[in-house]
Simulated scan of single mutants.
Amino acid sequence: MPHATAATRSSGHRPRWWTELPLIAVVYGLYSAGRLLVRGDVSTAVDHGLAILDLEKALHLNAEHPLNRLLTANPALGIPADFAYASLHYLVTPAVLIWMFRRRSAAYRAARTWLMTSTLLGLIGFTLMPTCPPRLLDARYGFVDTMAQYSAHGWWGAGASAPRGLSGMTNQYAAMPSLHVGWALWCGVLLWRHGRHPLIRAAGIAYPLITVLVVMGTANHYFLDAVAGAAVMAAGALLTRPVIRMADRVKSRLRAVLAPVPVPVTAKKSTIVSGGCKTSAGERIPGQRTSSADSSGAATGSAAEAASDDAPAAAR
């Protein structure tokens, strides 16, 4: 995970929830809309799915078939796996994000940027390589859609993990990369790195591993989809610092453009009561103290005036 201290220092303050919520909502909205808009040709998506399956068989990595048969034959495993696939992706990730915001604020900004950057990279993957998941391949390839098989036990329909009647609102050919695995890996790294209790750190290890088994056993992803999801998260981690630096530069430029123009400073008004005006000798402002030197000067002036008045009288 990217180092968070430098990112926090560069931000200057802890992120505020009233700015974080709209930002996360906008990014997720753009991701969801983009995921729907990049639906590729079905035949192309099927070709990509079969190519991945053939590559896995050549590399002896085809773990999807035995896991899918296990969940199909055992409802006690298949139903919880379907619930996990349909819900944990949307529950655990926000919970970890909120936990980071409240308890690990120094690392929150880097964690949030890492998640968002990786999610947008995943959208690029959906665009470049639309892929049919195993559950939508022809039945002769040996996969059973457990979401459809156990749909009576959950809120999802037979078409997808979306709620009944909303399967058309999802892009079912966005299997490569698996962001179920990618987001689970993000959660796992943060729980392991920042969790203090051993159970929290253990959950950080278990959650991504369980997610990998679930996405393959429910026939929603190939193993290589999971590998691609981990690769996308690694790329997002490497790009986190550059993205934060770029965001800081954009913010400073916007602040410079939107900053109010400073008003020229005029000459300061004098705070002296007299306003800088001089008083004549012997005249003072009421209530103003006079120094001893002023008093002696005033007395000397009065004596001189008396002498001048007496001189004409003596002459007379």
Rank of each mutant, 00 (worst) to 15 (best):
D145Y: 11
K251T: 12
A256F: 03
R316D: 13
P198N: 07
Y28G: 02
G78T: 10
N220E: 14
I272D: 14
A25H: 08
H197W: 09
A247L: 14
P198V: 11
I52R: 02
K251D: 12
D310G: 07
G204N: 00
Y31T: 00
L136G: 05
A315G: 12
G217V: 00
L61P: 04
A228G: 15
L59K: 02
L67V: 08
V96C: 01
Y31S: 03
R164I: 08
P94T: 02
L238V: 10
V189S: 00
W18H: 15
A107S: 13
Y90N: 12
A76E: 13
L136K: 11
V46L: 13
T119Y: 03
T117I: 14
L77W: 10
A107H: 11
L213M: 11
S11R: 15
R69K: 14
A95H: 05
A45D: 03
R103E: 10
A86Y: 04
D248C: 08
T146Q: 10
L179K: 08
R103N: 05
A315W: 09
V243Y: 06
A110W: 02
T170P: 03
A299P: 03
E283R: 13
A84R: 00
P208S: 03
A106H: 12
T8M: 13
I52P: 00
A111G: 14
S105A: 15
L70P: 00
Y90D: 10
L121K: 00
